[in-house]
Design a protein around this nucleic acid. Structure first.
Lengths: 142, 142
DNA sequence: TTGACATCGTTGCACGTGCAACGATATTGA
DNA sequence: TCAATATCGTTGCACGTGCAACGATGTCAA
């Protein structure tokens, strides 16, 4: 039997290509405007909604290896965007929290992020909600 | 005004997480069973449907930087899965082609790939086609 | 109390990647 | 004809990442 296989219609490939293009474009935007990498942006975005939180928690919630979180946090601290303080209850934990400067930065980025999302949704048209549903389904069944 | 932002419902983030999980799981499968990386798999998959083809062409068609294609091709040649021959018409081009051994390998991988895709589609249920449509829409509007 | 084990965050290391530069070859235009 | 320019594939390099190992701290059971 003849082997038929079309990479272009292979779902994992389509997903990977779409994702890397979207990420690259978005990453370029906030790298240029704010000097941030993707892990740094994820850490900030989580802190703004979760308050003071440990590296471990971010690692678990945001799909980043703990070493990535650790290094992102180190850079963010060096830039004055977050503070790192040992947890008084549990000396193993390090609490990360936004500084005022960091919060101001995040509040600049969020509108840019939302606008980029809106551009994506405009490109997707009525498929936008389908995409969200499908991705949510994948998330649930992991 | 209070800033509201939920990373979990941010589309680029959802897309990135879903994609990296799918890719990681799939990559692990054919790394373990066949010793292949993602770029190598893409090169093989393209060769099986396109015949003898240049590095440049694969680079353009398969969303891989040409250095990645070049290195993947070097490894595949070392493993005896493809041949690299200079194009007689244009000395700058290198034609890549599957060897018999490479073709036999690809014919082993394809069923595994299709099965993994089927598992994904099973998880997605009736959202599978939505996802395909949405990804196609993103592809078109790039 | 204390020893074994678990968890946290950091770090060393190997590796893959993106990007730019390079030599080699082709093409183009004067 | 030949100099300028473009294209192709490879490679050097800097950098980010995943993984494992580590020291420090905490937990738990004997």
């Amino acid at each position: 039997m003849k082997q038929e296989f079309d990479l272009d219609s292979f779902l994992p490939y389509q997903l990977s290509v779409a994702s890397s293009r979207v990420s690259r474009a978005f990453a370029e935007r906030y790298r240029r405007d704010f000097g941030l990498s993707i892990p740094e942006w994820r850490v900030l975005a989580h802190l703004v909604q979760a308050g003071a939180v440990s590296v471990r928690e971010i690692h678990a919630r945001v799909d980043l290896d703990k070493s990535r979180v650790s290094r992102a946090a180190a850079r963010l601290e060096a830039a004055g965007h977050i503070s790192k303080t040992p947890d008084p209850q549990d000396g193993r934990l390090v609490k990360l929290a936004l500084t005022d400067r960091g919060r101001a930065l995040v509040e600049q980025i969020i509108p840019v992020a939302l606008q980029y999302q809106a551009e994506l949704e405009a490109r997707l048209g009525n498929e936008a909600n389908s995409l969200r549903r499908a991705l949510a389904r994948l998330e649930e069944t992991t």
